[in-house]
């Protein structure tokens, strides 16, 4: 699942013409470390929903990769 998440994050980065990441840690911050803006996060949301069937931003705050992982594993 972490690998799939890395792949999704890299797709969003590539679509913006940014460099891919090699790895993720749970503390990696989506905005501050990866540099996602709100439109990138919207694309990330739908890619995660299409893969895992969950809307990560539907309730609560999601700031880090760890926040996403706990949302996905909570289903």
């Amino acid at each position: 699942m972490e690998n799939k998440l890395l792949e999704i994050i890299n797709t969003v980065l590539l679509n913006r013409g940014n460099e891919e990441l090699k790895d993720l840690t749970k503390n990696t911050q989506l905005r501050n470390d990866i540099g996602f803006d709100s439109l990138d996060l919207a694309e990330l949301t739908v890619r995660i929903e299409a893969e895992f069937g969950i809307d990560i931003f539907e309730d609560g705050i999601v700031l880090t990769v760890g926040d996403i992982i706990s949302k996905i594993t909570a289903i």
Binding site: N15, A42, E43, T45, V46, R47, E49, A50
Partner: peptide, 9 residues
Amino acid sequence: IIRHMLLHK
């Protein structure tokens, strides 16, 4: 619909 459009670029 916007989300769909993002997914399919």
